[in-house]
Amino acid sequence: MKREETEAFVLAQPYSAPYEHATGPVGTRFFTELRDNQKILGMKCSGCNIVYMPPRSTCPRCFAKLEEWVELGDEGTLLTYTVVRYHEPTHPTDAPFAYGIIKLDGADTGIGHLLGEVDLKNISIGMRVKAVFKEEREGNLLDIKYFKPI
């Protein structure tokens, strides 16, 4: 049968799956400090002399088990950024908005986050930024509302 002779049926089938992710010992300590004390903790591998952000329990470079917590600064440097102009339900805020990867002072790796209180036309790599904490914190990375230029 030729395709134009029949109407294609399409079955719409929405699906939602609310997972419960355990944060594990490392994530639990990180999020507790973030929520209760507005402290950002990284994890150091002494063998590699690298401070990881986000913290993790295994060093991906040397395979060591990591247990050396390091308190990081709430200021850092912008490694890269983008201004998002499309809309998705996964976005935490309405477009246009900016993402950055920020290397916090004291860390050797960067963390992706939102940029706020920022002129979207005036963002640059190497820019200094500072974490702005939420008033009501819940124990997730959005306890940092965004990073703002300083």
Binding site: Y19, H21, T23, G27, P54, E88, T90, H91, P92, Y99, I111, G112, H113, L114, N140, L141, L142
Partner: peptide
């Protein structure tokens, strides 16, 4: 899911 997914 812990550190990056819900940033979208």
């Amino acid at each position: 899911p812990l550190y990056q997914r819900y940033l979208g």
